[in-house]
Design a protein around this nucleic acid. Structure first.
Lengths: 178, 178
DNA sequence: CGTACTTCTTCATCTACATGAATGCGAATG
DNA sequence: CATTCGCATTCATGTAGATGAAGAAGTACG
């Protein structure tokens, strides 16, 4: 996750919509996946698995873009819920806007490079999930997103890391004792 | 993982290098991360964790591109090993070629969209690693990459799924019994 | 042909983390 | 102010998958 603010040909005067904390912007099963640019506030995307458990895919603070890319790109049913963790102002984007032919070449290259960086972030995420124990994933999260740790509840950090809130609690307890 | 062949402004006459099965093309600790386009054969990228265990990040059959994107984009030390699972012909790319200003706008848009699709694939991978049990991940792998399952030894599929070869063996035994 | 090597499998044991329940606490709400 | 509710914590128990060892079968190579 790196900041992709003021990019993606986003018209700073584009019409924004305001949502209250807790508002649900997209739901699994929706007919069409949307793309949101976050001007202010904080969004998250997550799935609910077959046992009813939440798993957070990503957080999107101001300047970020968040979407169900798999659904957008492969036409699969929408699977990611997207909601507000804080009061937020967002712009709803058409996916085609990101790389449309009207944009300047420089802008497209800029956007493409940002996507490429996202790949780097996801590479890290996959490798951590496969190879690192929960405590290491937590420490990496704290380093990589220090401000987020203060804005989101522990239980959400836990489901982002792929563990339960209880497990995170004991990890934190152990870390405090040393 | 979808096919990204004949894209990425790859000159079909570009000079290719031939490598034998088992050849190591990139190693953790290398000073500069490389990008490989696979013309024929099969490559993989993987890390070796602190306990000496391998974890495969991805396979790259003919037509694919493979690289340590995190190192390329964030200037981090090279962490991914890349080697040949079959005799292969590859083209070594400069990263800048992907989105350079000389390429046509259409080509850049094409490339950017391919990157976007890769994001969709990685989204799926992360969600599976977080929420799905090993047996589901294996079944998804078989569906998504049916031909790879025949070209790659079980133990590598296991480390791609994030489990041990023993665990995969018992999963397969159970699946055969039903 | 025999030896070595790799892959796959099975089993016994161990461990990281999940699950479920109980408690305390602070913030929101009437 | 009292009540509720969400969040974090702790504990007792359960389980998916790891670990380590050992054997069977296939393959490479002298």
């Amino acid at each position: 996750m790196e900041n992709i603010s003021d990019i993606f040909n986003i018209d700073p005067n584009a019409q924004t919509k305001a949502y209250r904390k807790g508002a649900l912007l997209q739901s699994a099963g929706d007919s069409k996946a949307l793309t949101f640019y976050v001007k202010t506030g904080l969004l998250r995307s997550y799935i609910i698995d077959s046992k009813g458990k939440e798993h957070i895919f990503m957080f999107a603070p101001e300047g970020w873009i968040i979407a169900d890319v798999e659904s957008l790109e492969y036409g699969k049913p929408v699977e990611l819920y997207i909601d507000c963790l804080e009061d937020s102002e967002v712009v709803i984007l058409e996916k085609e806007l990101l790389f449309n032919a009207e944009a300047s070449k420089e802008m497209i290259i800029k956007n493409a490079n940002l996507l490429y960086r996202r790949l780097g972030v996801l590479q890290r995420r996959v490798l951590m999930l496969m190879s690192a124990p929960a405590v290491d994933r937590y420490e990496y999260f704290l380093e990589a997103y220090p401000n987020l740790a203060n804005r989101v509840p522990q239980r959400m950090i836990a489901t982002y890391l792929g563990i339960t809130p209880q497990a995170l609690s004991t990890i934190r307890a152990k870390m405090a004792h040393s």
